[in-house]
Computed example of a mutant assay.
Amino acid sequence: MSLRIISADDRLREAQGKTTMALFGPSGAGKTTLLKTLPPAETLCIDLEAGLKSVQDWPGDSIPIRRFADAVDIACLIGGANPAAQPEEHFSEAHHAHLRAHHSELAEKIDTKRIIFVDSITDLTRQAMAWAKTRPEALSERTGKPDTRGAYGLLAREVIGLLKHLQHAPGRTVIFVGILEKVVDDMNRVTWQPQMDGGKVARELPGIVDQVLTMSLFSQDPGAGPDALPTWRHDPDKGNARRLVCQSGNPFGLPAKDRSGRLDLTEPPDLGALLTKINQPRKG
């Protein structure tokens, strides 16, 4: 039996070493450069978009991935075996044992990493869509022709399953990076939404992770009174400072969520400092 009682102290120790986070920002905003704010010896970058040119001098390890099947295997090595999975399914005991036996050196290297930086979830869904189109589920049983709805359904199931598996990775912080796109409707109203293949993945991701952050450009306005602190104004086109938006219901209309309750409305673009703030022991 795998059921057990977890004490408050055990739960607190686990929470201090484990956070799941989704980080969004416009293309070219510098999301990948935030790798430099994480401890390189403890961080592994899962490079799905061949986008590490901006961090050539970052001394940490990375794994380039170009196929969704490889992303599934790496997620299995990171998250371990799922005891609920059937032997023939992804993330099963058999799948995990096979990978550790055939890729022992890689598995041992992954075991030394405490932070997993997935760059990017946008490309992960694109790879998943390319894979899904080759599967029998993506063909109509009646006509044998491609079935787009079947492909999207398979994409959603597999990607959400992968994300949830990484969510349960023991003792690890997992950061999913994604592109945020600006959408202007017919009434000239602006909204911001994650760029992914398959709307279901984008809708469910905020419920999977602990934290949702958006990185964007801001300008600083002086305070209203002599003792008032300056305020940050969202200025995505001309701003001169990068900030991380951390709270839901923010006045900027940007995706954000803070399950820890410890982050300010905006924070400096430093993931190391942010994780320290989230995981600091509570007083009293």
Score class of each variant (00 low, 15 high):
120 S>R: 11
233 R>H: 10
108 E>Y: 12
165 H>Q: 02
186 D>W: 02
158 E>P: 10
121 I>Y: 05
176 F>S: 09
198 G>L: 04
155 L>S: 04
159 V>M: 06
139 L>F: 13
205 L>S: 13
105 E>P: 12
112 T>S: 14
184 V>A: 05
133 K>N: 13
109 K>H: 10
200 K>T: 09
122 T>W: 01
221 D>M: 02
146 P>H: 12
106 L>W: 07
118 V>H: 07
231 T>Y: 11
135 R>L: 07
134 T>A: 08
191 T>P: 01
174 V>R: 12
196 M>C: 04
110 I>Q: 03
204 E>T: 00
118 V>I: 12
114 R>Y: 06
220 Q>G: 07
139 L>H: 13
208 I>C: 06
129 M>L: 15
160 I>N: 11
191 T>L: 10
112 T>P: 01
167 Q>T: 08
167 Q>H: 15
186 D>G: 14
176 F>A: 08
204 E>C: 00
116 I>M: 03
153 G>C: 04
207 G>K: 04
230 P>Q: 01
108 E>V: 10
213 L>F: 14
203 R>N: 10
223 G>A: 02
149 R>W: 06
137 E>T: 11
225 G>R: 14
228 A>I: 03
202 A>N: 05
168 H>C: 12
151 A>K: 15
115 I>Q: 01
138 A>N: 09
166 L>Y: 01
121 I>D: 12
148 T>M: 13
196 M>I: 09
162 L>A: 07
190 V>Q: 04
214 T>Q: 09
194 P>F: 04
155 L>G: 02
142 R>G: 10
110 I>H: 03
178 G>Y: 02
218 F>L: 06
223 G>K: 09
135 R>Y: 01
227 D>N: 04
116 I>S: 06
118 V>K: 07
116 I>D: 06
191 T>Y: 02
166 L>C: 05
229 L>V: 05
194 P>A: 10
148 T>H: 15
123 D>F: 13
126 R>F: 13
110 I>M: 03
228 A>R: 10
128 A>S: 01
129 M>N: 11
179 I>A: 08
201 V>P: 00
166 L>A: 01
164 K>V: 02
138 A>Y: 02
202 A>P: 01
160 I>L: 15
231 T>V: 13
136 P>S: 06
136 P>T: 03
131 W>H: 14
153 G>R: 15
205 L>M: 11
231 T>H: 14
194 P>M: 08
174 V>M: 07
185 D>R: 10
207 G>V: 05
207 G>T: 05
170 P>D: 05
171 G>D: 00
111 D>S: 02
124 L>M: 03
199 G>D: 09
203 R>T: 15
123 D>S: 08
160 I>E: 06
168 H>F: 11
197 D>K: 14
142 R>N: 10
177 V>D: 06
227 D>H: 15
